[in-house]
Each structure stands twice: as C-alpha cells, then as structure tokens.
Design a binder for these strands. Structure first.
Lengths: 340, 340
DNA sequence: GTCAATATTGGTAACGTTGTCATTCAATTG
DNA sequence: CAATTGAATGACAACGTTACCAATATTGAC
C-alpha cells in the first residue's frame, strides 16, 4: 500500500507526498498545494487529498520543504545559560510570539564562552533558520559574516550600548547603574559596597559595576569596596558574601548587588542576623524578580523587562523585513521595595 | 567567482559544496567527506579543501544533509511552560548533554493545553528530529502513532506512574505525597492543610494532592482543608493563600504546598506576621529550589532532581538504540530544612 | 616485475518538496 | 459560435547533500 514499506516489508515508514498522491489519484504537486492552502484548489480535489492524507496520517516533511525554499520556520536562539531566572523569562517571551506564528526556537547555550558560542552559532546557522537571536553585543569576529551570508535578520538582546549587527533590544546598563547610584545617594547612603558573582562572566554586569563606581565617585562618595565571588549567583552566595563584606568593611551602610538572587541572600542574612534593613543596611538588587516582592521586607531592585525583551526581540525579527534594523531601549525602573 | 552570485550580481549568497569543490579543484563528494571527517582522506586533499572552504567561509547545509540522511541532529523538546524554575532546570539538564554531542533542542511549549501540544508536536516532528522529549505521560490519542511513524526514540519526563510511550524519567508523585504525609505526621502535626495554584493544571500536582489526602486519611488525621488558587504560582500568591487558609481554618498547624514558590510565600507571610515556624505553623514545600536554602529559616521541602531529570532524559534518548525503553525513577528526598 | 590488496578519489542517483512553465477545460464575450 | 480568458491541474527540474558503487592510485608480497 504505502510505497517503500513493500520493499522490505517491515516498518510502516513515513508517508510522503507521493504516497498521498497515489492514494488520492492526483499529482504530487496538487497534494503539496492542498497541504499548504495554496489558492485555486477545487473543493473536490481538496477533499480527495485530505481524505488520503488523513488515512495515511501524512505529515509534511519540512526538511525537504526548507531545502527547496531555502528558508525554514526555525529561529536560532543563543543564550548564555538557563540557570538563573533571567534567560528562561526571555525565552518565554520569545516563544510567546514565535509559537503563534508556527515558528520554533532552536536553542543553543554558550555558557558565557565565546568559542563555544561560535561553535553553537555555526551549528544553528547550518539549519537555515529564518532569523537569529543573540545575547549581548560582543561576539567573535567571524559571526557577523556568517550571518550575513544567510541574509537573515538578527536581533541582539540584553544590551543596547554598542554596535549591534542588526537590531537590538535591551536596556542601558550604564544608565541603570547611574540610576542606582543616584537613588542610593539620594536615600542618604554614603558608604556603599557592591557584590557580584561568578567572576562577572556576563560583561554587562562588569559594565554596570564600573558605571556605578564612576557615578559614586562623581557624587563624592566613592565605592567603599566590591566583592566579586567566583561562584555562580545564588541566595546562599549572596548571604555569605554579604556577611563577609560587612566583616571586612563594617562602615558599609548599603550594598548594590549584581542581581536579585544575591540581594535576596543579603536580605535573608540581615533578617537572620537581626540587622535593621534599611536603616542599618540598605540593599538594592537588580532585575526585580517575583519572589522579592513577597519577602517580609520587599526587596528594592532595578526592575528589568525580561519577558518583554524576549517578546520584542521576536517581534523585531518578524518585522525586520519592513522596518529594518532598530535599536529599542525598553528601560528599567526602580521598584518600590523597602530595603533601600 | 562563486557560482550563483554572478547570475544576478548581488548578494554574496551562501556557498555550497559545489563552490568549494570548484575552488579546490576536487569533487563535491570529497569536500563532503572532508567536512564530515570521513575516513581515508589524504592530508593533501584535506588541506586543499579546508583552504577553499575557509576562503569561502563555507558552512555545510544541514537541511540538505538531513533530507538525504533521513535524520537530523535536532531533538524535539516539548515542555508545558517556562515560567517557574522547574522546566528551565530540566531544559538546562537536557542541553548539558545534547550540546556536547552537537545536538540541539527545538523547543515547543504546550502551556498545559492538550490541543496546543498536539499542534506543537506535529510541527516539531515535521523536522525529522532524531528523538523527542515530552512532559508527562498523558497525551492526545494520535501522538504515539505520529511518533511511531518516524521511528525515533521518545522519553517522557516528570512522571513515571502510568504507561510511557517509550522511556520515562521522573519521580513517583504519589510516593512523594505519601512521604510528605508521613513526615509531617511523624513531626506531630495533626491539623494539616494544602495549598496549590493555577487550578492544578499539571495533573501531577493533582495526583500528589490526592495521594497526600488519602495518606493523611489513612493515618487518622484527615486533611483539614485545601486551597487551590486560580492564579499562577508565585511567592505572592503563596503569602496570600496562606493568610486566607489560616483565617478560614485557624486550627491548621501545618501546610503542604504544591511547590516552593508558594511555600516561600507562606514562610514570608509567617515571618512578617510573627508566626512561630515551625512551632505554631509547619511549612513543607515541593521541589527544593535554591533560594529556600538561604532563607532565615531554611525551607523544608521535597527535593526533586530537575536538572538531573533533564540530563537523564537526554542520555536515555541517546542510548535508546542499545538499551531500549527504560523507566527510571530518580527519586526525591526530604530536605533538611527547619520549617517543618 | 607482476599481482593482489588497500587507500584514495570520483560519478550518479536519490532524499521529499516546491517554483516555473505548460496544459486542460469550463466560462465569458462580442 | 469562435475567440479569449482564467481557473484548475500536472510535468519537470531543481534545492545541497550523501550512499552506493565504480575507478584509479599506491603499496607490499612473492
């Protein structure tokens, strides 16, 4: 009955256009057209084809389609990691737009390693995706050329300060750092510390710390100290580094953290140690994650639009044919927490 | 110089095996073999080809390769959602195995909707993935048949109680619920409540609650009440529902939560309201997320191996040719928190 | 120096789909 | 009623790769 399966007489095998066409007694191209809802198809033909297709439970082979078309419904998405809440949210935002269009993300993780990123991008590009989303603005040299060869749209997320390959969606991290410095200074804090983690692998956090430091300097109250853990960010590390930093520099009256996981750890440490927050110690996080809104003292934080960043990136990708390259500043806001 | 680009004289166009072969003065097959590291290639040939390939910055077209080979290096991964920490961890585990093998996940989100899941699976299968990872054991009728047609391995994650299509990796949710009931009962709690969220969309949480209820009944201290919020899980919802449940049933001395986000919310509520934990109120979460280890009172929770589940799923997928279908119980453990 | 065995290369034909260009046939027009 | 149009279908040739089967070099054995 179904072509190839006779030859060897075993597996049901995947049915093809040809099988459907044979069964329906029409040409392959007609089946193709019906499957794709092409115009100028008679109801009679459509019915015949659909019946045959259903009885064979035919699924179009998009690999073949993509080869012929030179384009697919895949979108390459390259993120550094999945292990904090930032990138899953971004990915969620991306998927929320893509899935409605019948598009799908092919995922690659760089683990903050440039060479690995290059390898992953090369592999993903070999699938002729219809677009690619990258994290950050700094990439190895050959990458823009590789993308140009496919002539597909690129959107870079997270950062907008630099020279994007195509479009970019994100926030200004230096502006966020300046806002943080101004905010804390405005609240009366004068002995400010900084805590980061994971050796600042994302260059964005390094940029943020530097801008923060510079701004404090300009405000006349230079950063007292910063402590960058080698470990990955976590609440536990946040608690430990907070204790350590306060021991080394008892005069510190406020800490700005690289992210909310660390800041929550700081808050938990303070709660457990009976430190008065925000009086004795002010705490300011970064990202504005959900949990921080429910803590006994709600966490003050720089809220970043992570989900929206993903959505916007996907939207820009889809519209880039018309709108060309765009740089979109989604901006941040300082949440109304009570820890600073 | 590069074939197609002459015709119209515009885009650099993507170079192909043919372009490389022409430039290197060898056959297309030879280029193909060099690119794939096939055996029996002379150094001279390899060098010529590599030089040509580099100068054209050639990237193999895997769409064509997959069509010819009838199989790709893509793995379809269908998850319900990205919006709590569970599935990102699982995905992280999956990718940690896949990426080292040059494989890539194509993602589909079902949003806990069966029909949507079917649609997504159909689309992903049309890419001839080399395997597919699904969430849970309950799927719409046509799905097993669709997968069988491609003759690729399937791994279902999260749950192991039921009839898997292929392999399954997860934990026994009823066993976890029983362990929770026994643990709380053993700690002396007798007026136990339950809090869930999002209308229990994941059937796993429903199964867990039922088993929990049944066990408490058997232990002679029936569940006092359960409160299932319609909202998605979050610490905020956990705090609110905890307050609400205690108001409705002041006798409750302990609450088992559907997940740690809710439980953390409960803990924060208790801390803010000055409720003595675990004396006046015991709290037990589910999943064992990182943050819970750093709270002023570390959260007691049923720890589930989410990352490991992803890793194991990917491993099973890769080894299924030899090992066949396997059901793997990764088991859970009750964390040594201090809230129950 | 001859012959078999092996290492190295190439030619050809698919894989399943769709764009381009026919072709058929019914409907419309003057 | 012939001529013209347009709708509906089909034939054929790609898309870029790789499996399969030659064909040609190279090596070693006797």
């Amino acid at each position: 009955m179904s072509g190839r399966s006779d030859i060897k007489g075993d597996k049901p095998a995947r049915s093809t256009l040809r099988d459907v066409a044979l069964l329906a007694g029409v040409s392959e191209i007609s089946v193709s057209r019906v499957m794709r809802d092409a115009p100028n198809i008679s109801d009679k033909l459509r019915d015949k084809v659909m019946a045959a297709a259903n009885s064979l439970s035919y699924t179009p082979n998009r690999v073949a389609g993509a080869l012929k078309n030179q384009s697919s419904n895949l979108v390459a998405v390259v993120l550094p990691s999945m292990s904090n809440e930032v990138f899953p949210s971004v990915l969620d935002g991306i998927e929320s737009i893509l899935n409605d269009q019948g598009l799908h993300a092919v995922l690659g993780l760089s683990e903050y390693d440039r060479d690995r990123e290059l390898k992953v991008i090369r592999e993903l590009l070999s699938w002729s995706p219809m677009g690619i989303i990258l994290t950050g603005l700094h990439h190895l040299d050959p990458i823009p050329g590789m993308i140009a060869q496919l002539d597909i749209p690129v959107v870079q997320i997270m950062d907008i300060e630099g020279a994007p390959i195509g479009s970019a969606v994100g926030i200004s991290h230096s502006a966020a750092a300046i806002a943080a410095a101004d905010y804390l200074h405005g609240r009366g804090y004068r002995k400010i510390g900084y805590i980061g983690a994971w050796s600042e692998k994302p260059q964005r956090s390094k940029a943020r710390r530097r801008a923060f430091e510079a701004r404090l300097q300009a405000l006349g109250c230079p950063l007292v100290a910063s402590l960058i853990s080698e470990d990955r960010s976590s609440a536990m590390v946040g608690a430990q580094t907070t204790a350590a930093l306060r021991q080394q520099h008892p005069e510190i009256d406020c800490i700005f953290y690289a992210n909310d996981d660390l800041a929550l750890g700081g808050l938990f440490h303070a709660l457990a140690a009976g430190i008065d927050v925000p009086g004795e110690l002010g705490l300011l996080g970064f990202n504005g994650i959900d949990i921080g809104k429910a803590t006994p003292i709600p966490l003050s934080s720089i809220e970043t639009p992570r989900f929206e960043m993903g959505r916007e990136a996907a939207r820009l990708l889809l519209s880039s044919r018309e709108s060309g390259n765009v740089i979109k500043d989604l901006s941040f806001k300082i949440s109304d927490g009570k820890t600073a």
